[in-house]
Simulated scan of single mutants.
Amino acid sequence: MSLTEKMSGRHPLSDAEAAYLSPLYRRDISSNYVDGINDPEVRAFLGHDRNLTVEEIQDFVVAHENSEHQILLGFFLNGVHRGNIRLHDCSEASIWLGIALFDKAVWNKGWATKLLKSALKLVWARLSVKTVYAGVDSLNVASSKAFHKAGFFIDKQTASGFVFASHRPSIGCVQ
């Protein structure tokens, strides 16, 4: 079963009716998405140092649509696509998470933390992985803060930044 099937539907953020995560499809690609993802300030920490073409973005999105190992979840606010959560390299033990808010109108308003918390909740509910990892550039202070606020901890430091982790909450009895 693909991750898109496992994560199907709209997933409202806990405290905002007009905000939700939903699997991203080719039909969701808009000029705002293309322009936003190519904004130099946005792409500074996304791992590509040049503008992406519409075709490259379409190929990237389509490659995630029916994969068993990766999915793009779009962040929609008031009906507008504002960013993505990417879950990738899914195994029985773990999955990697990335976040990109390409609409700068939602920056510094707590949305990254809300998205990370919602993504974790969704992963714990729909997948059997034990750990969620995320790589964060050491220069991306805002992202590091959002991961901390969402309950992630620094698992290790690398030459370029940090690997954050969050483990599946355990349910046990207090004796």
Rank of each mutant, 00 (worst) to 15 (best):
E5S: 15
D35A: 15
A150M: 13
L97K: 03
K117D: 07
L97F: 04
T131K: 09
I85D: 04
H64P: 01
I95L: 00
L116A: 08
D28N: 11
D49V: 14
D49L: 13
L120T: 13
K130F: 01
A93L: 12
S67F: 07
Y20F: 02
A159N: 08
S143F: 05
V129Q: 00
I99N: 01
F164N: 07
S91P: 02
V61D: 02
A142V: 08
V163F: 05
R126I: 01
L127Q: 03
V163Q: 12
S14P: 11
A142D: 09
V61S: 00
H88I: 10
L101Y: 02
V61W: 02
V129H: 01
R26I: 05
W124E: 00
G83R: 11
N108Y: 07
D155G: 06
T4P: 03
L120K: 13
F76P: 06
F152H: 10
Y33V: 14
I85K: 08
I154F: 02
V61F: 00
E17H: 05
A63P: 01
S144D: 04
V136G: 01
E17A: 09
I154D: 00
A159L: 09
A142I: 08
S8Q: 10
A142L: 09
V136Q: 00
M1S: 11
E65P: 06
E55W: 07
M1E: 10
S138F: 03
I171N: 14
A165L: 05
G151V: 10
H69Y: 14
A125Q: 08
V129S: 01
D39R: 09
F60C: 04
N78Q: 13
G79M: 09
R168P: 09
E5P: 02
K149F: 14
V80R: 11
G98K: 03
A165D: 07
N84T: 11
K6R: 15
Q58D: 12
H167I: 09
A18Y: 03
S67C: 11
L87V: 12
L122T: 03
S30Q: 06
F162N: 09
H148D: 11
G79C: 06
K109C: 06
A63V: 06
A159C: 02
G161C: 08
S31D: 14
A16N: 06
S8V: 07
N66L: 06
R27G: 08
N51P: 09
V80M: 06
D155E: 15
M7L: 15
P40S: 08
A93H: 13
V42F: 04
M7S: 11
R168D: 13
E68G: 14
R168G: 14
V141F: 06
H69R: 14
P169F: 15
L24P: 02
P12V: 15
K121T: 15
V61C: 02
R82D: 05
P23V: 03
D59K: 11
N108I: 06
L77D: 10
I71V: 13
G79W: 07
V62N: 04
F45G: 04
S22T: 12
D35S: 12
E17K: 12
R126Q: 06
G161M: 08
A125I: 05
G74K: 13
D28F: 03
G135V: 09
S67M: 10
S138W: 00
S14L: 14
V132P: 00
I95R: 02
R26S: 08
L24N: 02
R126W: 02
N66V: 08
R50C: 13
S144V: 10
V136K: 01
Q70T: 15
A119F: 01
A165R: 11
